[in-house]
Design a protein around this nucleic acid. Sequence first.
RNA 1: GGGCCCGUAGCUCAGAGGAUAGAGCAUCGCCCUUCUAAGGCGAGGGCCGCAGGUUCGAAUCCUGCCGGGCCCGCCA
Length: 574
Amino acid sequence: MDLEERLQALFTQALLACKTAGIIGSDPIPQVTIETPKVAEHGDFATNVAMLLARQAKKAPRAVAQAIVDHFPAKPAWLRELKIAGPGFINITIDPAAHLEVLADISEQGARYGSANIGENRRCQIEFVSANPTGPLHVGHGRGAIFGDVLGNLLSAAGFQVTKEYYVNDSGVQIQTLGRSVYLRLEELRGRKVDFPAECYQGAYIADLARAILSGPDGMRLQGMNEADQIVWCGEYAGGVILEEIRADLAACGVTHDRYFFESELHKASAIEQAFATLRDKGLLYEQEGALWFRSTQFGDDKDRVVRKSEGSFTYFAADIAYHHHKFTQGYDRVIDIWGADHAGHVPRMKAAVAAIGYPPERLDCVLLQMVSLIRGGKVVAMSTRRAEYETLRDLVDEVGHDVCRYFFLMRSHNAQLDFDMELATAKTLENPVYYIQYAYARICSVFAKAAEQGEEGGGRHGVDLTKLALPEEAGLARFLGEYPRVIATAAIELEPHRVVFYLLELARKFQAYYTMAKQDPRYRVLGHDVATTAAKLYLLKSCRIVLENALRLLGLTAPERMAKLTTEEEESD
RNA sequence: GGGCCCGUAGCUCAGAGGAUAGAGCAUCGCCCUUCUAAGGCGAGGGCCGCAGGUUCGAAUCCUGCCGGGCCCGCCA
């Protein structure tokens, strides 16, 4: 139990005592929240519970606070002082050494430190990227890919059994169009003059594919097929090749899915018909103007949706219903879809579908990622999928590197639009927060290397004298390390990985500040003290290293033990 | 016209009922005999879009308005 939980328990006891004494009414006592004051003079912790109770107690908030303090259980040794302040806060001061206790937990739990059991081992599927295999991934997909990957790690750390899945639309119009696009380029190569239609994929990669087919073993065989068969073959072939390229691009930024689920599997298993049977039994399907409609308005959508077009084919949404039906029959307790903000309008219908097939819609979360703009030279790079004028994810990763790419996609709330500023990501590497964080980690490793060199012992679990960590920054650092599990828990509950990014940056800052103090004040040096002091300081550093490493791993960033010296801008101009 | 997201320092953004609103970048000043100065310390800079309301207390919750992004198909 950490300090906040212990304080919460003590205050709850005090409130019960007040209730027994008749000072506060018989209403259920409120949840005691322990917060961290922004100002140091307000103590280590504070609670506002007296102000919340003032109304029902019909007393001034400060009087209620006084009563709570009077009825407080016997103070444990680590609790120094309770002080009533301001409009009715109770400020709490604790023995700084108490903050250091967490170091033993960190040391003991190692890579597991920060994990929680919110998920209680429930199964959670998270679906992301799911781009149609009709062309390379662009930077917008990159955000979804890295966000999804890290959200998966986060939920895994929070105690869910996570499966990361990619839904592949390998049938339907888009693959037909892809096939036709490749086929037409093939015809061009064979010397036929063709009008390349606007709705076909314009990118140069289409012609590249056609060229590869023509010069490959299938080139001759295709000649013997009729046009329709050639188009089908081209679609399947190109889709397969492009999907492999997508897979490779994802791998280049450290994203792997546990499973690729193909839309064609749904068709093979007649999953759409089966899902429809369920809906039809409930009277949720009806025909109108030759099309088949799903009564999504019964579940809060603003209009009913077509699931089978009047020309007979299913809509994309029909397959989505079947797919989500499938997800839940697979035994997932929880399903998360990660979509671009342009799909916001799909959320009500998807939730409606989940409810209609008989699952509580809360079991589906749709996380919407706002749009990404790539900034070069202070200007937004115009992108057009239609004209195939866009920056690919692969080019971005190649240009800025794996870690910077991931960090930049993760550093914003999913509700905020993301400006991916290439100037910041590349040219100003010295101010880049990614390197700053990694440098903190490398510095710790370097101290340990030095310690080993000099034969100084430390970081061991036994016999560490924590009283040797008497500097205020040391208690502060330990305290901040102690907040890590809470950050993970909140981030997991809110589905907000960026909270971990901000925590990590702040931890790096706190460490760097502490470390640099040694330049002015030898007490801040880690090595070179008496054995017990050095051992204690190394023990603190070991904990910092564990938390940095755990957070970096969760975000999928590398934790380098040393960093190559980069050149500064002045040096470059020499 | 309707829906979703956003509006906070010069710029990019955290903070989502608490006390004196934060960080990075940019600007200015100071600090290297030492475990990596790729660093640290400090300063300036804010009607938290506007107007009402709820509350002991609002950047945070509610309503309206203004500005920006995305969407509103028997497309995917």
